[in-house]
């Protein structure tokens, strides 16, 4: 474990806490894409198949349970909770995310580390996570003004993978057999997708103005 990875995990956890705070405190999920939340639940469920077979550390197991539990809880809340689901922007959240799932699964069948059930689903989850934010970014552009908590949620979600890239660089130089090129390349694509959001987020922070994404 190195400082970049720990900071990355904490930032990821922070993004989930901010999202939970927004939904719980405002009893509203306006501006949040249910499709992105469903994609993230799928990412965690397919990535942590080894949850009960490989024990890495207490930290690793606890964090996996937190990520799986929180993502499922958020999807449940946005679908079933009568107050929250009323504020869902269903007519704006129309990204066809099933295509993302199909494309990522196809890619995982072609590019993976080993042709085993677990490795293919792991590669699938890595590719899917890279594009999972697309429905959310599209929804932000369509819904115009972005409330602070939603903006912070997306910011932390983008920042965590950028910290993981630093972690992979660090591990590449400090460990002999370290090669995570699937996660690395996918992580670079993932972080790049946030580039324009980061730009407008920085502008709004500098001008102390409302975050506005151009339509």
């Amino acid at each position: 474990m190195n400082i970049f990875r720990l900071a990355g995990d904490m930032t990821h956890l922070m993004s989930i806490l901010v999202l939970l705070l927004k939904i719980y405190a405002t009893k509203s999920c306006s501006g949040i894409s249910l499709k992105t939340q469903e994609l993230y639940a799928l990412v965690f469920l397919t990535r942590y198949l080894d949850l009960f077979t490989d024990f890495i550390s207490v930290y690793n197991t606890v964090m996996k349970l937190v990520f799986i539990g929180s993502s499922l809880a958020i999807v449940w809340c946005m679908r079933m909770h009568r107050t929250v689901k009323r504020s869902y922007d269903g007519q704006l959240d129309t990204f066809r995310h099933y295509f993302l799932v199909a494309a990522c699964f196809l890619s995982a069948l072609i590019v993976h580390e080993k042709f085993t059930f677990q490795e293919i689903f792991w590669a699938f989850s890595i590719y899917l996570e890279a594009v999972a934010i697309l429905p959310q970014l599209v929804l932000l552009q369509r819904s115009g003004n972005v409330d602070n908590l939603t903006g912070q949620y997306v910011f932390f979600l983008g920042a965590y993978r950028a910290l993981y890239i630093l972690n992979w660089i660090y591990r590449y130089f400090t460990e002999q057999h370290f090669s995570r090129w699937i996660a690395c390349i996918s992580g670079l694509v993932q972080t790049a997708l946030y580039a324009d959001f980061f730009y407008y987020y920085f502008i709004s922070w500098k001008n102390n103005s409302k975050l506005q994404l151009p339509a």
């Binding site: 990875r5 995990d9 990821h12 080894d50 490989d54 890495i56 690793n60 964090m63 996996k64 990520f67 080993k114 792991w122 993981y164 972690n167 057999h177 370290f178 090669s179 995570r180 996660a183």
Partner: peptide, 10 residues
């Protein structure tokens, strides 16, 4: 043989 690098990252 290098054993399968366990997925120690989240």
């Amino acid at each position: 043989v290098q054993d399968q690098v366990s997925k120690d990252e989240l």
